[in-house]
Structure formats: structure tokens, C-alpha cells
Amino acid sequence: MSPVFIILALVTFMAAAAAMTLRHLVHCALAMAVSFVGLAAIYLQLNAQFVGFAQVLVYVGAVAILIVFAILLTRSGEVSNDSIVAPGWVWGVGMAVVIFAVIGWAVLNSPGLPVEAAEAPEVTVRQIGNDLMTRYVVPLEVVGCLLTAALIGAVVIALRDREGEP
């Protein structure tokens, strides 16, 4: 546990908590972006450069932008005096605490986890590319289809209803 990791973990966690508790939705989205950047930095710490950069490119560059646009389009950015939580939220938070307690207990007491850190694996981008084109080529194609379908589906769903239709 290096101090760098602890700092990054704290930033990531605080930003995630802020994203879930702040009143103003745009602030939530921005806090979420900070949390994703923190995660990307943790990936870099763990020698996963490619994934870290891809994380920033996709989450900060695309998903965060999508979310702030959706906030503006649904006028959720205007602060109202209503409660920000749904009725019965205590149960939700309680469940979350239980989940964390169970996973945390399992992580701390599991005998199967490797105790000392292994050699840092060296994976070059070339290796990732080769694997994508050989061993993982079917998932790659499936993801391609999925993204195309999502693209078309999102456009169709969000299209304005034509006049005359409900």
C-alpha cells in the first residue's frame, strides 16, 4: 500500500460519494468525472497504461459529456426543494452497507489471495492489439455490433415523436 495509492483511493472514493450525495445534478456529474479520473490514475499505478488512457478518453470525454447534456435536456439541473432521495432510501443505504460489510469481510479473511505482490506484468500495446485480433476477435466483433446497435437505438429512442403520434 503505497501512499500514492492511498491518496488516489481517497480522492476516488470522496468524489464517488460526492457524486451520489450532492444536491445539484451537474455537480454530481462533475464529481463522477473526478472519480473516473482517479480510477484511471489507479490503473496507471497498476501498470495498465492502455486501459487508464482509454478510461479517460471514454468516461471523461464521452460519458460525462453525455450525462451533462442529459441533465440539461431534462431540466434536472434546476434545484428544487423536494427531497433528493426516493422514499424508502434507508433500505437502499442499509443494503449497500451490508454489501460492503460482506465483501470487506471476505476480502480481509480470504485465504486464497496471493500475499506478496507478484512481478509487475509488462504488457505492450502491440500485445493487446494482437490479442484483440486473434484470441478475442469474436468479442471484438460482438462489441462492434453492440455499439452500432446502441448508436442506432439511442437515436431512435431519443427522436422526437412525429406529429399525430402520441
Partner: peptide
């Protein structure tokens, strides 16, 4: 685990 719990709490209670 912490991130998962925070995300879960937010997703079901906001």
C-alpha cells in the same frame, strides 16, 4: 467494494 457500495446506495435511493 467501497465504490460498488456507494454506487449501489446511490442507484437505489436517489
Amino acid at each position: 467494494a467501497l465504490l460498488f457500495a456507494v454506487g449501489f446506495a446511490g442507484a437505489v435511493s436517489r
